[in-house]
Design a protein around this nucleic acid. Structure first.
Lengths: 351, 351
DNA sequence: AAAATAACCGCAATCGGTTGAAATTTGTTC
DNA sequence: GAACAAATTTCAACCGATTGCGGTTATTTT
């Protein structure tokens, strides 16, 4: 069944050496560990002769410093913790990509913890990052989270926290957010300019800022064009199934909306699917705008007009901000910072 | 701009205490650190009185053991490293989800490293997991990787490795793979039963087993039905853009294929898009089967028939296998294990 | 009352590396 | 060749916890 690229791997496994340490080098050269340590980092006290001797032997033996020992001494791990609702969402995986990119370039490692959109697990995740002694934490709340004391524990333990995308005001931590208000405004404004007279909004939970801000953008775009505001046209729904169900009933109403602004692409696509089932034409009968610019948005039929959230950029910026905090150490007069990522309307066939 | 949920957070920040240690407790109670340590873990030597005293103070002060110190002493980190091509692919994010699930349940943490499909970065990732002293590593190769010595370094350092999805035979490590051969066979068999006479295959790189096995499945399904094999109908292409380009040219040929089996959903959807641009009807004129069962597969038009790879399951199994290896320690007579994940044909409108 | 036995607790080494201060070797000068 | 300075190297403490072993009480046995 197996044909071995490394035929004698059993031999390899038998000769496995434990990781060699600075002590091994010291003994072999008849030096002290301190000398070896200093030699390896070009300390001026060490004579060139011993320095090269140490370095050569280290290279020969394949020495690599034990990061754990360094961690213990320096009380830092060069690791950042990431607490995120669900990895499988395109938006979040794009964010992770951006985070990992920056972390990699700065020689940090990323530990990933999923909350699965539950408060309980999110609390456990904060414990996990604490016991793992990460240097800093990046967080996007779960939908359930309405109490934030578990994050305060991180702050109290001197662990810098940067919240991204799903944030609330009032926590002593930095934020990186998309310009949800403006994105929503652009989306709805676009629908109006395309001739929509009655625009519905499928919204995110209102205890999250992203929910509030997108709703505000929706309202303000209507106001700008002197259009009536109808609270009955706002439906809290941000999943595919829920949105499809709602869309199917809403589209059967006599005065059905002719425009839809959905809080994410999955909801928008659900609306499109529902419309098609009811034999409504898109964009002739109804127009739809999504929010995210996921891969599916470009693939669905008709292609979805949407607002690009630049998840990759958002992840990058969040990580950069965290690294900046890790470099400074005057937490004494900390002022939280907020970084806003600009968004862009991607116009396609659904409007 | 900010309104504070925790209005006096400046005060909180100023009173930040460094993580309290076992020593703090020992001093406060006039005990030695060893006694405190033993008390905390219910060692029989310690009297109930001091034990409860220690535990109460520990709880009061919010003591949590310093994992780094434990790591140093135990020479293990309860961390597993994950080296993966690209997080943004739905299949891989589903796998991470499965891995994290199992790791979480077993109190392990996951460090994620992306190779971005490059050999160079993958080598760097192996260095990163080494310096981070993870207990074990889960790997899916980059497309570029054809030399595997960097992984041998992990094995030599006594770090168990489990390869998943993208594997090669002959490495002294476990494997968890999808049943690519059978999945491909099912897909092509399905196309034939639906009446296709000339079936093209968009394939993965042939140095990866997934590429080879899916191609074999394709061939064997044709053979089973006594259909001719035409090497010109196999196109190495596993990205959206490349597949669209190829599909556009192939579909213009006089003897164009009437069935397509693509190595992943993105390629399959590209073929559908190309067909539509050329005003070909699906499934009447051509039929398409994908491989992955991503979210987009259910959303595209017509909905894509595809083979579900069960990424979540695959991630779970890979992680379980690694944890099993971590528990045993008789690497002396190590025999690599291979776990195969069954796949399932998901029949939809594209065939 | 002396000795044996529990019951409790502390000392010190350890994990692998860093670093200030002390000690040793080497070189220079008179 | 002694005295002193400079160059090199070692000592020992430290980071935070664990643990074998030895030590100190209190309790029981003879």
């Amino acid at each position: 069944m197996f044909t071995y690229l490394y035929p004698y791997f059993q031999q390899i496994l038998n000769t496995m050496k434990r990781q060699i340490t600075i002590k091994d080098i010291a003994i072999k050269l008849g030096l002290s560990t301190s000398t070896v340590s200093r030699a390896l980092k070009d300390h001026p006290d060490i004579s060139p002769k011993t320095r090269t001797a140490v370095k050569e032997l280290a290279a020969l033996l394949g020495y690599r410093p034990n990061r754990i020992a360094l961690n213990l001494r320096s009380n830092s791990t060069r690791t950042i913790g990431l607490i995120i609702p669900e990895i499988e969402h395109y938006f979040f995986s794009a964010i992770i990509n951006g985070i990992e990119e920056i972390a990699y370039k700065n020689d940090y490692s990323v530990m990933v913890f999923q909350s699965n959109e539950t408060y309980r697990r999110e609390v456990n995740n904060t414990h996990a990052v604490l016991t793992n002694r990460v240097d800093g934490v990046l967080v996007s709340f779960s939908k359930e989270t309405q109490d934030y004391s578990h994050f305060m524990k991180l702050v109290e333990n001197e662990i810098p926290v940067v919240f991204f995308d799903r944030v609330v005001d009032g926590l002593p931590a930095d934020q990186v957010v998309a310009d949800d208000y403006h994105g929503a405004f652009m989306a709805v404004n676009h629908l109006i300019e395309k001739g929509c007279k009655r625009i519905a909004h499928f919204s995110a939970p209102q205890h999250l800022l992203i929910g509030k801000n997108r709703l505000s953008g929706y309202y303000d775009a209507l106001l700008k064009h002197n259009m009536p505001i109808d609270a009955n046209l706002v439906f809290p729904s941000d999943t595919y199934d829920e949105s499809k169900r709602i869309a199917l009933s809403v589209l059967k109403l006599p005065n059905r909306p002719d425009g839809f602004f959905a809080v994410n692409d999955m909801s928008a696509i659900a609306i499109i699917k529902a419309a098609k089932e009811l034999n409504l034409r898109i964009p002739e009968d109804i127009k739809v705008v999504g929010f995210e610019n996921s891969k599916s948005a470009a693939l669905c039929e008709p292609e979805l007009t949407t607002v690009d959230q630049f998840g990759f950029e958002l992840g990058r910026e969040a990580c950069l901000l965290l690294l900046k905090r890790l470099k400074e150490n005057n937490q004494s007069n900390f002022k939280p910072e907020r970084k806003v990522i600009k968004m862009k309307l991607i116009q396609r066939k659904s409007t």
